[in-house]
């Protein structure tokens, strides 16, 4: 259960970081401004980083000690891929919602 909560928190954290970075990317002038593409790129970079980092951190830092309870550890490790997937989906859904809410702003470039 802990891993699912952690993945949701991670997804929220990563979407926040993606939003901060997207807002920090300045609007450019000119015929072919690159800034919308950069925002989109950072959104998807964090979309990938979110499950990867979540998995790595959960597996190597947050995981329970198998020597104490092997069964708990196995259950925890088995839940991680699913939690990472859920985190990814939640990240994308949150991104989509934010992009539509702030459709005329910088976050609107995500979708």
């Amino acid at each position: 259960m802990n891993s699912y909560i952690t993945s949701i928190i991670a997804a929220g954290l990563f979407i926040l970081i993606a939003a901060v970075i997207s807002n920090a990317i300045k609007f450019e002038g000119g015929a072919n401004p690159k800034d919308p593409g950069k925002r989109k790129m950072w959104f998807w970079i964090f979309a990938i980083l979110n499950p990867v980092l979540f998995y790595v951190l959960s597996a190597f830092v947050l995981a329970p000690n198998p020597e104490n309870n092997q069964m708990e550890y196995d259950e925890y490790m088995a839940s991680l891929p699913i939690a990472a997937g859920i985190g990814f989906v939640i990240y994308v859904i949150l991104g989509f919602v934010l992009s539509k809410v702030f459709k005329n702003g910088k976050l609107g470039n995500w979708f």
Binding site: G29, G30, A31, P33, P36, K103, N104, G105, G108, N109
Partner: peptide
């Protein structure tokens, strides 16, 4: 001026 329109269109206007 076209760049303004491109910008606004890119921002869903």
């Amino acid at each position: 001026m076209r760049a303004f329109i491109t910008r606004l269109a890119g921002q869903k206007i």
